[in-house]
């Protein structure tokens, strides 16, 4: 078995071999998703609950579709609306759900570490769909698959992650994953949006787009997370776009065949110029969405295998 994890809580506990196994399987599912009949029975009979304590359209839809294509019974729960308002604690919510015998629990929560806490209290496989500013493992995996398919490899690439690193769980998971696969990772952004201690993460930190993007294979833009900011991190959106927004002039510093990525949803004209985002020769943003479904299918398939094995062994 080359994928041993019981839960997918983050990239941090994964071994490079586990990452490769997952991406290989996801590649197969890309084929399935492009076929006329998009269905498999890998998760038949299993129940998947999507529990979102934070607004999400894209990630939730992606997980829902992934589960349905694999034959699972999928239920969506929007947790902001229900028990939170009534004062129920996270652990009580977990125990309540656990009593319904789900097999796969997909959780997004606004607080870092909340999904880990929940995973300790339930008997099923838990997938982290984003916890606070901590991790968003399936996003990093789908980014990795996109890069691997575009570049033909997932090692010895120079990748610039640009923008709002401080508030981004996507950045943390990507830094961990790309580091484990032996790539050269750069962080580019204004110092107020670079987290403290980032220079000790094994990355190079740049405060200037031209320098940071020089000779990069991949340019990964991040969304400016205005909703997580409680103070002035940048003077204005127009100054931010001028200095850190990705446009043709800044992208010219990267390699000629560099690809442009964005986890979505995009703020056009804030962190990325619309024409770059829509340039089918450079932008792989639509592929990222497609890979998202495949990667989530692969992750749930592997976790379900481990879950069945664990249950068979008592």
């Amino acid at each position: 078995m080359t994928f041993r994890a019981r839960h997918l809580l983050g990239i941090e506990p994964l071994h490079p071999v586990e990452i490769t196994t997952l991406l290989d399987l996801a590649d197969d599912y890309v084929g399935l998703n492009r076929a006329a009949v998009k269905h498999s029975d890998a998760l038949a009979g299993l129940t998947q609950i999507n529990m979102f304590f934070e607004n999400s359209t894209r990630t939730q839809a992606s997980f829902e579709l992934a589960g349905k294509r694999l034959g699972a019974d999928v239920m969506n729960m929007s947790m902001q609306a229900s028990s939170i308002k009534k004062g129920e604690t996270l652990i009580d919510t977990a125990l309540t759900l656990n009593a319904m015998h789900p097999d796969l629990l997909v959780v997004r929560h606004p607080h870092s570490g909340a999904v880990d806490l929940l995973a300790q209290k339930v008997n099923c496989a838990v997938l982290n769909a984003g916890d606070g500013r901590h991790e968003h493992p399936t996003q990093a995996l789908l980014d990795a698959l996109t890069i691997r398919r575009a570049k033909g490899r997932l090692h010895r690439l120079t990748i610039a992650i640009c923008g709002d690193i401080a508030h981004s769980r996507v950045a943390r998971s990507n830094i961990l994953l790309l580091g484990k696969m032996e790539n050269r990772v750069r962080l580019v952004g204004p110092p107020t949006l670079i987290p403290a201690g980032a220079e000790d993460w094994g990355v190079e930190v740049y405060g200037d787009m031209a320098e940071g993007l020089k000779d990069c294979d991949v340019v990964m833009m991040l969304r400016l997370q205005k909703e997580r900011m409680d103070g002035g991190f940048i003077p204005s959106e127009r100054e931010y776009f001028h200095r850190f927004g990705l446009d043709a002039a800044k992208l010219a510093h990267a390699k000629d065949d560099a690809i442009v990525m964005h986890p979505g949803p995009m703020n056009r004209g804030v962190e990325i110029d619309g024409t770059i985002a829509d340039d089918i020769n450079r932008s792989v943003i639509q592929e990222q969405v497609e890979m998202g479904v495949a990667v989530r299918m692969a992750a749930m398939d592997l976790l379900a295998l481990n879950l069945r094995e664990a249950r068979a062994n008592g």
Binding site: S112, G113, D131, G132, H134, A166, A196, G197, A198
Partner: peptide
């Protein structure tokens, strides 16, 4: 205000609000 841990590499990796 709002900090739960001391700022630095560890706090940033854990994604927790931190104070210098």
């Amino acid at each position: 205000k709002g900090a739960a841990v001391t700022s630095g590499k560890f706090a940033s990796l854990r994604g927790l609000p931190a104070v210098s």
